[in-house]
Design a protein around this nucleic acid. Sequence first.
DNA 1: GCAAGATGGTAACAGTGTCAACATGAAAAA
DNA 2: TTTTTCATGTTGACACTGTTACCATCTTGC
Lengths: 187, 187
Amino acid sequence: MKKPTVEQPSYHHGDLRAALVAEGMRQLGGEGAGDLSLRGVARAVGVSATAVYRHFPDKDALLSAIAEEGFRLLGQAQRAAFGAARGAGGRAFQASGSAYVRFALANPALFRLMFARPTAASRQSDAAAFLRENSAISAPPGVDRELFALQAWSLVHGLAMLMLDGLAPAEDMLIEGVLSATLGPDC
Amino acid sequence: MKKPTVEQPSYHHGDLRAALVAEGMRQLGGEGAGDLSLRGVARAVGVSATAVYRHFPDKDALLSAIAEEGFRLLGQAQRAAFGAARGAGGRAFQASGSAYVRFALANPALFRLMFARPTAASRQSDAAAFLRENSAISAPPGVDRELFALQAWSLVHGLAMLMLDGLAPAEDMLIEGVLSATLGPDC
DNA sequence: GCAAGATGGTAACAGTGTCAACATGAAAAA
DNA sequence: TTTTTCATGTTGACACTGTTACCATCTTGC
């Protein structure tokens, strides 16, 4: 019996876990509103609400998985921006910071979700690790590198949050202005 | 008929709106968990769930009122720290920033609530106004004051959020370190 | 004193997260 | 191949939530 590569409704879904995470990302995508419901994503995937519990112990676990995927994408965006700017010969670290903020603005609901959970402060390591590495590279000589990293992270994270909340206008020029003022012209 | 100053159960509550906001603050207080329920605060106040709707059009309005009160307290804490530090002769602006972060750490749930609503980016003016005023005073000469204000705000807000999320250890020394590094030794 | 409006309560509805019990199908054991 | 086992998906139910329509009570201006 051949494996059906086309969509063919069957009792077993195949890879429900991935589908749930993907659908969750989709519902949060764009300018999407705040909270998604477990039943909602299950419905969208075409599966019963309780089927989710075969793959996640509870709703929070599903949200955490989605957040994790978000952190993966964020790290990826940062790396891409860093590489591109370094290739073009300048301000690579600042470029990665700017990518951080732009990612938040492009995926507001996802970004909020990623940081709105006191639980599970473990798996953010991807984005965090990137920041630490590259801040070590980009730190001005003579300053504590850990401190510089935290400072840079605080700056971009705070700016992203404030813009998301509408407390600062979400303009690209403003992002560059704030970042270059702190990170210095040679980052 | 004299007005009873002691607690005496009566059909009409007296000042239910204020009581609801107060109870909401109380439930969010301390290390308190995430979200509070409309029915929950109503129950705690000793009133029916639907009585809330005589004072707030919906749950979001109640949360907004609580958030507003939070902003009032935050501004108050900042002002106090600023005044005290100036009296003691130094680093007043940095002190207000440090107060910002410490407020967030002392009231995690409230702080999250305050900034977790895309709606109503209007009434934060209290804390925001304070920041603008005093950053104008404290800005180093020759830099855009609006930009300096936003930069400072981003830094403290980001630091507060990261510490709340457990992505940076919530240590007082670290706060001072991050703030003094950016705001300069003469703020 | 009385009508009117502000403030409170009850009952109900749709929607949610979650659990227990059952159904199905695919892979392991015979 | 047949059988057993186990991961995966379903149905039904429960307690809880925000919200609405309607009824009860108190306060107050005439």
